[in-house]
Design a protein around this nucleic acid. Structure first.
Lengths: 173, 173
DNA sequence: TAACGCATGTAACAGGTTACATGATTTA
DNA sequence: TAAATCATGTAACCTGTTACATGCGTTA
């Protein structure tokens, strides 16, 4: 059984207390190339985690900004997380809507396919730049050697697939 | 809205009538690097598609093997598929349980992490070999230029990430 | 004045997963 | 004789998605 939203959030809280908003930010910047999350998943999960005593909530009132809830992992939460991190890893899952379209695009006009290519290239370039831009601050705030591998993996992935896409869009024209 | 199971199955049926078993086979060999399916999804989807008249079912009795159902796409199904294939593509989604483990592995012993690396490398090598082995028969049975791009994408992806993984497992030892 | 950042939450729903159930023939 | 191939299906469940709802302060 792969690690799900609950374990990911527990994992992020291991590096210190955070709000749901901050958890989302970490997910969007540093883990976005191998996991994706939305607020619609984060807040309900945090609520369940609190009900199960895996995290505790501290409410902070703010005047200039909305009030916030800071979540801290408990010992029970730590134990649950340790169990999950030691469990065997499962298969990676990639769902590419772009490749799906391309695979079945035999009846689409060339121009339409070119647009799909360009959109996918643009998306990947944004992802690549976002990830690369993270590196400096990430190292400052403490990046482990193992986390560096997840970073390298993302860069290699985007770089290699962008090359294929850019070559293909040329021969499509 | 990304293409879901129903559109994928409709897409496969565009290249001719197939059984659920055959659909699974195509998915596991040629599309497995960007989509994954299970029988638990395929058969119920086929049933819904038939109820909605997007496909028709022909029952074939066999003596030496189990009976089978051959599904054929209808005109309504064609129309639905054309609509889906022309719609904008959405973001790719990658979920890597291995990278998740690696990212949060600070408390795991080196040996355990090495095992995770080796397992992931083995999985990817199998995927790479399976995909490469498909090429010859795929070309014979008709592979479009665009499908060739999805193939190249998969090869580039596995090759690039395997290189990162192999380098990292060495420095981990 | 529009957009963005901060900040949280719910309800309905869709979609797929997992586990189970069956069984003959062929290949290693 | 164990395992793989062919072949289909259901039921319960889980997890996450989408859309909606609110609202102030700051920056462009």
């Amino acid at each position: 059984m792969a690690m799900k939203g609950r374990e990911i959030i527990l994992g992020i809280l291991q590096s210190g207390p955070h709000t749901g908003y901050e958890i989302n930010d970490i997910l969007q910047t540093r883990l976005s190339h191998f996991f994706d999350a939305t607020f619609g998943m984060i807040y309900p999960t945090l609520k369940k985690l609190e009900a199960e005593k895996l995290v505790t909530k501290q409410q902070i009132s703010q005047t200039d900004r909305p009030n916030k809830n800071i979540y801290t992992i408990t010992e029970v939460g730590q134990a649950e997380f340790s169990k999950a991190i030691g469990a065997p890893t499962s298969d990676e899952i990639l769902k590419s809507d772009f490749l799906m379209h391309l695979y079945f695009s035999q009846d689409l006009p060339k121009d339409q396919v070119t647009v799909f290519f360009q959109e996918e290239i643009a998306r990947k370039e944004v992802k690549l730049v976002t990830l690369q831009a993270q590196l400096a601050t990430w190292i400052e705030n403490g990046m482990t050697e193992r986390q560096k591998v997840t970073f390298d993996y993302g860069i290699a992935y985007y770089t290699a697939t962008l090359a294929v896409l850019k070559k293909a869009v040329k021969s499509n024209q």
